[in-house]
Amino acid sequence: MAQRRFSSNSRDDSENEEDDGEEGEEEEEDYDSDNNEAEVDDVTVSDMKREYSAEEKEEEAAAIGYKVIEPLLPSDRFFKNREPVFAVVQVGSHQFKVSNGDCIYVERLKFCEVNDKLILNKVLMLGTSTQTIIGRPILPDAAVHAVVEEHALDAKVIIFKKKRRKNYRRTKGHRQELTRLRIADIQGIEKPEPKVDPKQKRAAVKQQEKVAVAA
């Protein structure tokens, strides 16, 4: 019953959605029978499904600490090999220490689709193996580029309340919505040349020796 009413309201709110012929008739009856209640519900529904303008979206995104650029195209060479650079970046109320190629799970970010490129602009610290830049509290000209990989639900958390000797127990499940981001690039610090692995060097040297022996 409640479900039906909800759906009928949302139909009234947003007229752009097409109706199913069969469902429409059933809903009409319900709607007549409890008109007053439906009106009360209307307000709550419109609150929940608030329409945001582009500026509002940008503002809210900036408050959380990100900015949506554009969808990632398959032709883009957005990902690079690992660089010995890290950044401490804030998204929402969490801070992550990231370098490129990492993936982080943040609370679900609104207004972004899977495969969108983002700029995370609340960078608190940048560092390489020799240099560190600390923001007070943020570095204005630094940026971390990321790509949205997934919007998914976390594992279920069970909230269990109990009062002893009162025969009171409540169980409630919760699944947090998360967004998975892949860090693509860190900008704002000069990057040192990637060092050649000592192991590889040694292997190369050994090979040379072998060649020498064979000769």
Binding site: V85, G101, S129, A152, L153, L178
Partner: peptide
Amino acid sequence: TRLRNALGRKVKKLPTRHVTRHPSVQG
């Protein structure tokens, strides 16, 4: 849409929200 947005991972409790293969830059 939820199914579309998911990667098809197994749903598990995440041990950490930050997954990296290169834990330390400065050593």
